[in-house]
């Protein structure tokens, strides 16, 4: 069972890499880019075929390791 997880910085938390990407894009001529926020994406293969259970595991995995909830949010998709 494959679970996909996206971890992003919470809004309001400084993202210097995102800012640098945005400025570079502006410099490249993409003047319409107003903001970029960088995040992380995880493909997790969980044993078993029960989607509900796999998503529960994924949620625990996110809370315990993949996301630092002081500054990050996670989404299981």
């Amino acid at each position: 069972m494959k679970v996909k997880v996206i971890v992003t910085l919470k809004s309001g938390v400084l993202d210097p890499q995102g800012k640098a990407i945005q400025q570079t894009l502006n410099g490249m001529g993409f003047a319409n880019v107003k903001d970029v926020r960088q995040g992380k994406y995880f493909d997790i293969n969980i044993d078993g075929s029960d989607e509900q259970k796999a998503k529960q595991s994924a949620e625990e995995i996110c809370k315990k390791l993949l996301a630092n909830q002081v500054i990050e949010d996670f989404k299981i998709i």
Binding site: L14, P16, Q17, A20, N68, I71
Partner: peptide, 16 residues
């Protein structure tokens, strides 16, 4: 900070 023994987090330096 990652163990939770101390509060907060160390983020990337502001000037990258």
């Amino acid at each position: 900070t990652e163990t939770g023994l101390l509060k907060g987090v160390l983020q990337q330096n502001k000037n990258i």
